[in-house]
Design a protein around this nucleic acid. Structure first.
Lengths: 129, 129
DNA sequence: GTCGTTGCAAAGCGTTTGCAGCCTA
DNA sequence: TAGGCTGCAAACGCTTTGCAACGAC
């Protein structure tokens, strides 16, 4: 019994800070770029391993998007959805939810989750047109 | 100029029929399994190549789901969304749409698409519990 | 000193591509 | 018969894993 102590390495600290500073979900490569600002030579395998660990311990949640590699963001933001910018490829949080999902399902089906992904241009890319 | 004639091979015919008979979006492997019923020895590369061709000529549309490999279905079904069964992994069409997406986006963002994915158990899996 | 963690390189896995032979038109 | 199409195997890109060295506690 008893969980093994988790160690605080420079790498793990840099990865955690990348998420804490970001206001949006990050991809593995975005984390690698951000964390390399602190830890040069940081390996991609270390980023993958730490993200998995942080998801396992519920510090991060996985944000799955259609046709995209997963993003990750801090746990505890409550129910929300996401917006994917087709120009810069970044993902942003969207606060509200339209509700009335249950009306949409066929008879006999049991609904236990729903996901909404919006797409288009983020404010930055839209104004840069 | 002028497009090159497309040939009707046994393989392509079997792949087309798999989609015509299915009432739901199919994955590459589902297509392989179904089409192999007609064409033994059918190669997976042929399935990938034909699906790509059929999407390019708008005979099929791509159904992208978060964290899943893409499914494909016949073009021309109009606006609808999808339900993913977490037990059998099959995907089903869902007819209606809740609307009021535009209200959800942050200021400055330009919305050009939205996607809703419902999840849970399909009628078959739910009744088999 | 222990043993969790890291970087590197190799292994996996699903998808794509090169190629020689096949087969439709 | 031309050239699009197919099956096989190799190549790809992304993610995971094996391993010896490293370093947090």
């Amino acid at each position: 019994m008893g969980r093994v102590m988790e160690r605080n390495t420079r790498q793990r600290g840099a990865i955690r800070r990348a998420f804490q500073r970001a206001s949006r979900p990050l991809s593995t490569n975005e984390v690698l770029d951000l964390a390399r600002g602190e830890v040069t030579g940081l390996g991609i395998a270390t980023v993958y391993r730490n993200i998995r660990t942080l998801v396992d311990e519920d510090w991060l949640i996985t944000v799955e998007l259609p046709g995209e590699s997963p993003r990750y963001e801090l746990q505890g933001k409550g129910h929300h959805h996401h917006f994917h910018c087709s120009r810069c490829d970044r993902v942003f949080d969207v606060a509200s939810c339209t509700g009335n999902m249950p009306e949409m399902i066929p008879p006999g089906f049991v609904l236990d989750r729903h996901l909404i992904v919006l797409g288009g241009l983020c404010a930055e890319c839209a104004s840069a047109t």
